[in-house]
């Protein structure tokens, strides 16, 4: 069809360009959304307060008389209420200049795994 008038094609071309522009724009925007969401999620999912609290409570309780019962309290409550596996091992360290206790804390809530060995 040699005689076909092609003058109108620039309109459809324009529509095509605009569509591509929208696509590119939204790609960028959704990236920005993702950044904000992952920042917040990263902070929420890392249980910083929980681990700090656990740590200080364990350090306080190894000097008490009923350490094993208290650690069992914490293990069971963590499991049932915070959905985290907490295991604490402790033994006295006699071969030091000051008598100290070696404490091993393991924490796992499925997303975050935390382990620490410390002397108190």
């Amino acid at each position: 069809m040699a005689g076909l008038n092609e003058d109108g094609q620039w309109i459809v071309l324009m529509g095509f360009l605009i569509s591509i522009a929208i696509l590119a724009l939204m790609l960028i925007v959704s990236q920005a959304t993702l950044v904000g969401q992952t920042t917040a999620e990263g902070v929420i999912e890392f249980p910083k307060h929980e681990i700090r609290d656990l740590r200080s409570e364990v350090i306080r309780s190894v000097h008490l008389q009923t350490t094993d019962a208290i650690l069992e309290d914490m293990r069971l409550l963590s499991l049932k209420r915070n959905h985290a596996i907490v295991s604490v091992d402790w033994r006295p360290e006699p071969n030091m200049t000051h008598p100290m206790t070696r404490v091993m804390i393991r924490y796992n809530n499925g997303v975050t795994v935390y382990e620490e060995t410390l002397l108190v």
Binding site: N5, V12, L13, G15
Partner: peptide, 20 residues
């Protein structure tokens, strides 16, 4: 040919609008 040309712009406009 002449009749075809008379609706060409309209068709292109509709196509572009739909696309966008």
């Amino acid at each position: 040919v002449v009749r075809d040309g008379a609706t060409l712009y309209t068709i292109e406009g509709v196509a572009a609008a739909l696309l966008m």
